[in-house]
Design a protein around this nucleic acid. Structure first.
Length: 381
DNA sequence: GCTATTTGACCTTA
DNA sequence: TAAGGTCAAATAGC
């Protein structure tokens, strides 16, 4: 049995560190806001602008470094202060007003989208055995629109019945229950606001659609996906994607089964550990076998590492690049589905100085470089 | 030709 | 028995 006091102490320490980091980020946001409000006045003072920009960059770079360190020692879960809605008005009042203000800004929206991009990583983390229920609690973003529910079937049903509108609005029939539902992990993410809004959010893995079905009582069909490497490595991972009835701009993604493709000894590209992270360290950190742990290490690097900068935009074919399935290279859906939006680019867009854009859309979908992988063909079944 | 999506039919499960 | 889940032939893009 794991000593819970050690966990609590460690968690408290991490929380304190995270609090400092959050404060740093808030400070950076404030500086950016000040810069924005004084932009017109400072337009004729390039030196002043440059100095302010450098200051902002420095603050965010510092925050990123802290996050990187924090990320290596924690569980990849966002800070609860930011991403959990208060349970009641009392708690709402207790939140730092600065934080409340910040939560309502476009910056929050961008962060929400960032976590939208990373939610799949967390969900797949869960698929590797680190279910949220083991750590406690889901994740919710008030205005950002992210919610993760996982664990038992009852958890998932509770979500469906309470606010999806799908369960409650439909017939009173008892929902269908599968024996393997205990491995279900439900994630709600914002749908893309433009382009093909049916495209499920990128989660770092490569999926192949194998079915779509109209669901009783639902306005929108449910799409069924399985891991592209299912045949090659007998990877059992699957996911279902369905638009919410009461919020067509959000998708409910249900993950089932664990990815085993990245654990295959014959996987074409065994994921390397994150820089400075040995397999033993990774195993210690997340309690997974080295193979899985190094995969997580890769995720850490993928999300917060320096990564490659933004490359050329590929509008028609978002090919899988560094964000492909950890088991190996992923192919890209012919119709632009299963597109990959490497989170590294997202982080770069937000934290690096390279981007001078203040356009949130560019932050949300930074241009990415297109890479081709030599993927072993997944024979049509 | 290869690989992915679409979609009607069939299977599974409560 | 009904509804969700999966299969596999047909189809399409590269």
């Amino acid at each position: 049995m794991f000593p819970s006091k050690i966990i609590q102490k460690s968690t408290r320490k991490q929380q304190e560190t995270m609090d400092d980091t959050i404060s740093l980020i808030l400070h950076g946001c404030k500086l950016a806001k000040d810069l924005e409000s004084n932009l017109a006045n400072s337009a004729s003072q390039p030196e002043t602008l440059s100095r302010l920009c450098e200051e902002i960059i420095r603050v965010f770079a510092n925050a990123r470094e802290r996050l990187h360190v924090h990320q290596l020692g924690t569980t990849l879960y966002p800070h609860p202060m930011l991403f959990r809605e208060p349970q009641d008005s009392q708690q709402q009042q207790n939140i730092d007003p600065i934080l409340q203000e910040w939560r309502g800004t476009s910056c929050t929206s961008a962060m929400g989208t960032l976590f939208h991009q990373t939610q799949g990583v967390m969900a797949e983390r869960s698929a590797l055995g680190l279910t949220e229920s083991k750590i406690g609690g889901g994740i919710q973003v008030g205005s950002g629109g992210l919610a993760i529910e996982s664990g038992s079937r009852s958890d998932v049903q509770a979500v469906d019945a309470s606010d999806s509108g799908r369960g409650s609005s439909s017939s009173s029939k008892r929902p269908r229950i599968r024996n393997d539902d205990a491995e279900k992990r439900t994630v709600r993410v914002p749908a893309q606001q433009f382009g093909n809004t049916e495209i499920p959010p990128e989660d770092g893995f490569s999926w192949r659609k194998y079915g779509q079905k109209e669901i009783l009582g639902s306005r929108f069909p449910r799409a069924y996906y399985r891991c592209t490497n299912q045949n090659l490595y007998h990877c059992p991972a699957k996911k279902q994607v369905q638009r919410l009835d009461d919020d067509p701009f959000r998708l409910e993604v249900v993950y089932r089964g664990e990815h085993t493709c990245h654990m295959s000894a014959t996987a074409p590209s065994a994921p390397p550990p994150a820089p400075g992270i040995t397999q033993e360290m990774a195993q210690t950190m997340i309690g997974q076998p080295p193979s899985a742990a190094t995969s997580l290490g890769r995720w850490v690097e993928f999300r917060l590492g320096p990564g490659g900068g933004a490359g050329s935009t590929s509008s028609s074919s978002m090919a899988a690049g560094s964000g492909g399935c950890a088991a190996g290279p992923s192919t890209t859906g012919r119709y632009g589905k299963e597109a990959d939006y490497p989170v590294t680019d997202m982080a770069d867009a937000m934290f690096n100085s390279g981007s001078s854009s203040t356009n949130s859309m560019e932050l949300i979908f930074p241009s990415i470089s297109e890479e081709k992988w030599d993927q072993p063909s997944d024979k049509n079944n």
